[in-house]
Amino acid sequence: MAASTHPIFEYALALGDDALVLGQRIAEWCSNGPYLEEDIALSNVALDYIGRARMLLSYAGEAEGQGRNEDQLAFTRDCRDFRNLLIYELPRGDFGFTMARQLAVDAFEVPFFEALTRSSDRTLAGIAGKALKESRYHLRHSSGWVIRLGAGTDESHRRMQDGLDQVWGYTPELFQMDAAEAALAESGVAVDRAELRQQWESTLDEVLKQATLGRPADDWQIDGGRRGVHTEHLGHLLSELQFMQRAYPGLEW
């Protein structure tokens, strides 16, 4: 099946799924944040991701050319057909974990979308331009919190380090290229993720130093998202995300 689908469809779908599942996760913070100010800030981040997901999934549907729109793609595929990287689907955890994951993702997405603005695909380049502005803001927000929590109290330091340790093994997948993505990068459409690793590491090292946190050892890694081999958490996220469309199929809302 993968062989017959359009490579742009696959690429936009994967990036759209990344944004969708993380947007869904961050939205879970609504009314649960440590401050009202933080509820607002995290809702903003969630909104940015949902907005991105909508653009990317719509574009994927167009590229596929079978009449599937953003909602059909978001609400009627099962776990094995989701293409997001595992780091995006992990449960929100405590505020420390959420910020550790966000720092890892933001530090990746800033150079990623920066590079994608130069894509030969003008739609993707346009989406990237908007996403880049958002991710720069997200990175300021997450790195600010990682520093504050890392260098705050003993408890916050411990929790922040713990969050970082928990997420660490999911970060290598951010830099993995499969054959299809490599071919798209070759033709100037996609970004070569592997090339972003160094910049990501130096951003992280700088933040971790200020936060007095240690960089976890690279001694474990888990991947499989792009092949649809997910964590057990994704199915539950989808059961909530897709509830209405599953209970009342095919209706307009």
């Binding site: 969708l20 869904q24 939205a27 879970e28 609504c30 009314s31 509820d39 607002i40 809702s43 903003n44 969630a46 909104l47 949902i50 907005g51 997901a53 909508r54 999934l57 953003e70 909602d71 978001a74 609400f75 909530e240 995300l241 509830f243 209405m244 469309q245 009342y248 209706l251 809302w253």
Partner: peptide, 17 residues
């Protein structure tokens, strides 16, 4: 988290915000 479309989800998120 259960809004029936992505547009409705975004609108509701913005409202609660």
């Amino acid at each position: 988290t259960r809004a029936p479309s992505l547009r409705r989800k975004a609108v509701l998120l913005a409202k609660v915000q």
